[in-house]
């Protein structure tokens, strides 16, 4: 069996990527399983999806703790400890990162055990579908190629099958197919060996949970206001920047920010909390003086 784990943010097509992967494997004659992990999280929040590909029936269920292939669609997740992106990886795990930085730099910056495979698939997405962070097609193509064993034609058929259901126009579908082909060609194939131990199902893998009183399973939070420890600032793709010389201190932006991320300081000027600002850009849209500029957020480091 090969275990693949995909990381991205809600709204980036990570679930669809896992579906395309699973379908491509199925079309190539494998048994496949794919699914997203639904925390109840929202667009922008870290999400995880999984795929298992095997020559035999896939009996294993649940989240993949030790992936053979790790596909990271959104590089900013690597600096978010709560996303636990690299958890369970070993030096043999094949790691892919969607990034503009060269592989050795990525290894050093994120303290990875081995050199990751790197490709700027956002750039490819921008080129073909004009949406740099809709990664479903490109990330699936990369995953299929890295894994090996699955031909391009199976990948393309899987994309037609899966995206056909998403009411894409013929043009959009054609562009996605071109995108997939280029992403597929641009990464090497590793023809990974299937791990042996999935061939039999061994009772020693069963974990028997002991019985506990119900109170042990009722989560109770005693801290107050500790949600602020979760930094949602890296959900942002665009950053609102206030030009104070244009600002008249009307406080409209403060009133309208759903997150409460803008406060008025002692001089009655607004200050944005970038640690948490999700980048909805309501403030910039609502400012009557057009004093808030919108700039593209660059990658998590430069």
């Amino acid at each position: 069996m090969l275990r693949i784990r995909l990381h991205g943010r809600g709204g980036q097509g990570i679930k669809t990527a896992s579906q395309i992967l699973g379908t491509a494997a199925h079309l190539a004659g494998f048994q496949a399983q794919d699914f997203p992990l639904y925390g109840a999280e929202r667009r922008g929040a870290p999400i995880t999806a999984y795929a298992r590909v095997s020559k035999n029936i896939v009996l294993e269920r649940g989240a993949i703790a030790q992936p053979d292939i790790l596909l990271i669609g959104d590089e900013t997740l690597l600096s978010d400890p709560l996303a636990s992106v690299t958890e369970g990886t070993e030096s043999s795990t094949l790691i892919f990162i969607n990034s503009r930085h060269p592989s050795p730099d990525l290894k050093k910056h994120y303290q990875l055990e081995s050199l990751p495979v790197q490709l700027d698939i956002s750039g490819l997405c921008q080129k073909y579908i004009q949406k740099p962070m809709i990664l479903s097609t490109a990330l699936a193509a990369v995953g299929v190629r890295l894994m090996g064993h699955i031909g391009l034609h199976h990948l393309l058929k899987a994309i037609r099958d899966e995206l056909g259901q998403e009411r894409l126009s013929a043009d959009q579908l054609a562009n996605n197919l071109k995108l997939a082909e280029e992403a597929f060609q641009k990464v090497p194939s590793f023809d990974l060996e299937f791990r042996k131990f999935d061939d039999g199902f061994s009772a020693s893998h069963l974990v028997v949970l002991e019985r506990r009183p119900p109170v042990d399973s009722v989560p109770v939070i005693f801290a107050t206001g500790n949600m602020a420890l979760r930094k949602t600032g890296n959900w942002r793709t665009h950053r609102p920047v206030i030009h104070y010389e244009e600002c008249n201190g009307c406080a409209i932006c403060y009133a309208r920010c759903p997150e409460g991320d803008i406060r008025m300081d002692a001089n009655e000027k607004p200050v944005i909390d970038y640690d948490h600002c999700k980048g909805c850009l309501i403030c910039a849209t609502e400012c009557p003086k057009h004093a808030i500029e919108i700039i593209r957020e660059v990658a998590s480091w430069n």
Partner: peptide, 28 residues
Amino acid sequence: KVTDLNPQEEIAPGSALCAGCGGLEGMR
């Protein structure tokens, strides 16, 4: 006027609701 609103935020940031959620603004 909006400057009469309580400057204290009673809902700390960091929740997992979507960016731009209108309901959150109402509740805030």
